[in-house]
């Protein structure tokens, strides 16, 4: 489904490789945990996979086709990246969740409030949370909103960059249940790649474990 071959990205303005020669395939239904020391290029790799940054070497193919130019927004809708630090827009939670549906890539779809309320319920929060302003959210709450904002769009591949790092243990468990539930809605169709520094989480969550070493190479464990 998603195939990266010889993928490399240099540090901008220098010859140093951040990631180099990475080959990997993501198949439907994959639950991949991506581990490795800090600075080994995990974030760079996820950003490269959704083509948020230019790549200097190699290729990425989506369903057998290279992705270029104006195909990018529609591709990123399928291969959706959630930042390590959640970036919310001005406004309350509901406005943040509804905003993506105003984008051209999601035209024809509408914000499904009922679905969000059900998901919030699973996280132990009620609908009043939707009215909370982005300025009054804790770091963990903001991360929950960013996660909900992503999964409600039903991407095919979800790229999570330490998306549960700033959450307390109870919310981490809830977020994992949320991801489980979302993944099981369409078994064998959706894939998740999760960067995690927590081996237990990786063991719990993933069925494939990839390890990045310094120098930006990736190996299956």
């Amino acid at each position: 489904m998603l195939q990266a071959c010889g993928l490399g990205r240099r540090k901008p303005g220098s010859d140093q490789w951040l990631i180099h020669g990475i080959c990997m395939a993501v198949r439907p239904g994959d639950r991949i945990a991506l581990g490795g020391p800090s600075g080994s290029g995990k974030t760079v790799l996820l950003r490269a996979l959704c083509l948020l940054d230019p790549i200097d070497e190699g290729s990425i193919e989506w369903k057998g086709e290279p992705i270029r130019g104006d195909a990018l927004p529609a591709y990123r809708k399928e291969v959706l990246y959630v930042h390590q630090r959640p970036a919310l827009l001005e406004g309350n939670v509901e406005q943040n969740l509804g905003y993506p549906f105003s984008l051209r890539a999601h035209r024809g779809r509408e914000f499904d409030r009922e679905r969000i309320v059900a998901l919030l319920d699973a996280l132990g929060r009620d609908a009043a949370f939707l009215r909370k302003s982005n300025r009054n959210l804790s770091g963990g709450e903001a991360q929950i909103v960013a996660l909900l904002r992503a999964i409600q769009l039903d991407p095919t591949v979800l790229l999570l960059d330490e998306a549960t790092t700033s959450l307390d243990p109870a919310t981490v468990a809830a977020a994992e249940r949320l991801l489980d539930r979302w993944w099981s809605e369409a078994p064998g169709e959706r894939a998740i790649i999760l960067i995690s520094h927590n081996p237990e989480q990786a063991g719990r969550f993933a069925d494939r474990r990839l390890h990045m070493s310094a120098g930006g190479t990736v190996s299956e464990r």
Partner: peptide, 10 residues
């Protein structure tokens, strides 16, 4: 800006 791009914004 990057979050919007990641969500599929042009």
């Amino acid at each position: 800006v990057e979050a919007l791009l990641a969500l599929g914004a042009t």
